[in-house]
Each structure stands twice: as C-alpha cells, then as structure tokens.
C-alpha cells in the first residue's frame, strides 16, 4: 500500500434507515498512527458511522475505503484489516477468555501456528492474564470491555473501530483503557466514538463532531487548544465591538453574559490584554488559558441544531 494513502477514507457517505437520514454526506480520512474521536450526543449518528466503517452496515451512497480497498467491493479482504468493538462487547458467555480470543483470531484468518502467540500477546497487552480461564459471562463490566477490545486487536488490524469503549467503566478502568488506546495508536489507525469529552481530550489526535447525522466540526485537537487562547471573566456587560476595538484582540466570542473567549493577534500577550481590560474598566475577574474550547464547540453545536459551522 502507498504510504501517502490515508488508511481510512470515508467519501461522501450517507445512510438512510427506514426512510430517515441517519448520516448525510460524511467525509473523513484517517492515517495509521492517528486516533480520531467521533463526538456527538446520543442519536447523532456515531454508532451508525462506526458500523459502516467496520463493514457491518453498507452506506446508502458514498464509499468507505481501507488501505485503498473499497470495504463493500472487497468486503472479505478489507474487513480482515479491521478490528471492531461494538458498544456491547460481542462475547460468547459459554467460552472462557482464552478460548474466545482463540476463536476470534481464527475467525479473522490468522494462520494456526501464530494463534497461540497472538492470544498470549493480546492477553498481556489488555492485562487479562488472571482472567484467562474465566468464562466471559462471569466477567465484570470492565473486564468484558477489555476482552472486547482484545478481540478487536488480536489479529493486529490496520484499523481499530471502538464504539463507546469507556462506557460503563469506573474512572480507574477508563484511565487504563485510555492509556491502552494511546499505545494502540502507535501501530494502528483508531476511530472511537464517545460522548465523553475527557475521553477525546485524553486519547485522540483529531476530533469530528457529529450532530443530527452531519459532520459539524472536524479539527486537530492541538490546533483547537492552540487557537483557543484565553477565557476572560469580567464584571460588566460589554458588547463584542468593545473587545474588537482592542488592538491585540483578533476575535471575541461570548460564552455567557460575562464570560468571553478571546483570541489574540500574533505577538500579543495575555498581559497586554489584562492591561487593556483594566484600562477600559471592564472589571477583570478571571483571565486564564482556555482549556475547554472543545467543550464549548461541542455544546454550541449540540444545543444549536441549525448551526452552520463548516466542517474543516
């Protein structure tokens, strides 16, 4: 495969179910080594998108290609390169962890001599050693999720698709899962869906926000943070023009009545802004780096159904 070709290309994909448009004109790309977070409220179309990426569901229009192969024109070959963890881990309760992972490895076409080594590797990677002989039906939620993840990576796929992987986990389990996902991203392309912003911030390189089946925002997380600049809390009510009259302010965005997100022009500093606010007698209460830019974007999109923010 050509190294310059993105691992996963979703090109103008739409999906209708029962006469309703679930996904509309979605385009995304993903390279090996990247983690893409699909963010959206419940019903935004995240799971449908992941089911299409994993080959579970055919798009009504558009195409999904993996490593240059169309997922539906070459389904069997392409899908061997995908590891999919659905929202509910697909575990056979009658099998123990080791038997189950062995079955998954064979199902994904691993040659027989390599199966034992692959199962051992994934048991170690997902820290399932103490549970290896336990029936999957007897596992706790956290271990079920880990076994689900193990089945998705046992065959070392190029693309790993995870639907709400941290759902139902306690904070410690969620933390360890995030660490695991970060380590997976070294060798694989990873797509995960979630409605938990902290998961995206902790695991992902890029974020795509879906709302009502459409891609409303797509960005590299580091760019969101870099561009977010400052959050300013003031005593008085001011309008946007008052901010824009300040020479160091590139843009101003209201968060609530007295809280603003301010982006500075190149070469300006936070102290310049603080001085200007004092000079204008706005009554500065708080000035800090804006670490919640993603949250604000998400909340704005999720609460304004008619938003027309262009996808990057």
């Amino acid at each position: 495969m050509n190294q310059s070709t993105p691992e996963l290309v979703i090109d103008r994909v739409s999906r209708n179910l029962s006469g309703r448009t679930i996904i509309e004109d979605l385009s995304l790309t993903l390279d090996r080594g990247e983690v893409l977070g699909l963010l959206g409220v419940n019903g935004a179309g995240k799971s449908t998108t992941l089911r299409m990426i994993s080959g579970m569901l055919a798009p009504s229009s558009g195409s999904v290609t993996l490593g240059g192969l169309d997922l539906y024109a070459n389904p069997e070959r392409a899908r061997r390169d995908i590891g999919y963890l659905p929202e509910e881990p697909p575990l056979y309760g009658e099998l123990n962890v080791e038997e189950y992972l062995g079955f998954c490895a064979r199902l994904h076409g691993l040659p027989r001599p390599t199966i034992n080594a692959a199962v051992e590797r994934v048991i170690e990677r997902c820290e399932l050693g103490e549970m290896r002989r336990r029936l999957t039906s007897l596992l706790s939620k956290g271990f079920r999720q880990r076994v689900g993840l193990a089945q998705a990576i046992v065959h070392e796929p190029a693309l790993i698709v995870l639907d709400e992987p941290a759902s139902g986990l306690d904070p410690i389990q969620a933390l360890r899962l995030r660490e695991l996902i970060r380590t997976l991203a070294v060798d694989h392309a990873v797509v995960l869906s979630t409605h938990v912003l902290s998961d995206v911030l902790a695991c992902c390189d890029r974020v795509a926000i879906l709302h009502q089946g459409r891609l409303r925002h797509s960005a590299v997380l580091s760019e969101i943070d870099a561009g977010s600049a400052l959050r300013v809390q003031i005593e008085g009510d001011v309008d946007k023009d008052a901010w824009l009259h300040m020479p160091m302010v590139a843009s101003a965005q209201i968060i609530d009545a007295r809280c603003w997100r301010i982006r500075l022009r190149d070469g300006s500093s936070a102290s310049d802004l603080a001085k200007a606010i004092n000079d204008c007698s706005f009554g500065l209460l708080e000035l800090r780096a804006d670490g919640n830019a993603l949250e604000d974007i998400f909340v704005r999109i999720a609460t304004q159904p008619d938003t027309t923010e262009a996808a990057a």
Binding site: G55, M56, R79, P86, E88, P90, L91, G93, C104, H108
Partner: peptide, 13 residues
C-alpha cells in the same frame, strides 16, 4: 446476545 457483529465484521461471507 449482540454477538452477530463479531461474525459480520470479521470478513466472513
């Protein structure tokens, strides 16, 4: 039991 996705997504016809 939500296990069918395992077979459907595994590249098995």
């Amino acid at each position: 039991a939500h296990t069918l996705p395992l077979l459907l997504a595994a590249g098995v016809g």
